[in-house]
Design a protein around this nucleic acid. Structure first.
Length: 278
DNA sequence: ATCGCAGCCTGTACGC
DNA sequence: TGCGTACAGGCTGCGA
């Protein structure tokens, strides 16, 4: 599942491969559900002939800026993947959408599960207004994090996954951050000490930075769900401490990692390092 | 305010 | 081997 580090890696690669400056010459929608209902009628016309002026990331969204004040918001959800390649290549079976560029390349959106979404807007800030702060942004400080979570009474795991509290964390990095901070996912946010809050803040930033440094996490051997636009896997899966490591020894104390369900989500903890609240 | 669940989907893993 | 079933999870929307 692409989370902040994976989306950031994808965005950087699209820029590196000179998508900015290109003009869109064609659009093919193969699965209409991929396009948000509000953008569906005028989707093709809204994109064709426009120039790509910037590619950025906000939370787990890819924000493609086009000439004329139009923006594409792409959310990859579970299995969405972007692939930038020559237009002559075979169309992959799970392709849901394709954008042709004026240099004979195609940006393919491949998404077996069909959860991913594309939308067109002239006001991305309004569309993304409900999102919380960027965990790696300058305005995200220990103080602001503390103020955001202390006033609430929620379990830490669902809190970290709540994109209105903090934007960009998913299941993988939530488990990794909680393990690094030595906090049980069932702990209540309002009960954290100052030190624990600071530890969680640091852990979030550290695991996300590491994820980006390693160009993201590709899970699932053989058929990883996440690949960069040139088809490469990430390198962070080997660095994970607890996520999908049930039964393996905790890197810190050797106790076997346990899997539990918290807030309807598969969750991985070290039962010794992360003390369950009573 | 917070929680739990259904729905969106299909590939994978599992039991028989 | 082959079948059926449960499960995975980001996000939204609903009712409790």
């Amino acid at each position: 599942m692409p989370e902040l580090p994976e989306v950031e890696t994808i965005v950087r690669e699209l820029r590196r491969r000179h998508m900015v400056g290109r003009r869109i010459t064609g659009v093919t929608v193969r699965w209409p559900g991929t396009v948000e209902s509000g953008s569906r009628a005028c989707f093709r016309q809204s994109l064709c002939d426009r120039k790509i002026t910037a590619i950025n990331r906000r939370a787990k969204y890819i924000v493609v800026s086009l000439s004329g004040g139009v923006f594409i918001l792409i959310h990859l959800r579970m299995t969405g993947r972007l692939c930038l390649e020559g237009a002559f290549k075979l169309i992959p079976p799970a392709e849901r959408l394709a954008v042709e560029l004026d240099d004979k390349r195609v940006l393919r959106f491949i998404d077996p599960r069909k959860f991913g979404r594309w939308m067109i807007t002239t006001d991305p800030e309004r569309e993304l207004a409900r999102l919380g702060p960027e965990p790696l942004g300058k305005d995200f400080t220990v103080a602001s994090f503390s103020a955001r979570i202390r006033g609430r009474r929620r379990q830490l795991k669902p809190l970290l996954l709540d994109q209105t509290i903090l934007a960009g964390i998913g299941n993988i990095y939530a488990d990794e951050a909680l393990w690094m901070a030595k906090l049980h996912p069932c702990r209540c946010s309002s009960g954290l000490t100052t030190q624990e809050t600071a530890a969680l803040y640091q852990a979030i930033r550290t695991v996300l930075r590491q994820g980006i440094q390693n160009r993201g996490t590709s899970l699932g051997q053989g058929k990883p769900n996440y690949k960069t636009p040139d088809g490469r896997q990430g390198g962070n899966q080997g660095k994970l401490k607890v996520f999908r490591r049930t039964g393996e020894p905790c890197p810190s104390c050797g106790t076997p990692i346990q899997r539990l369900v918290v807030g309807q989500r598969g969750t991985h903890v070290c039962p010794r390092c992360q003390i369950r609240p009573s």
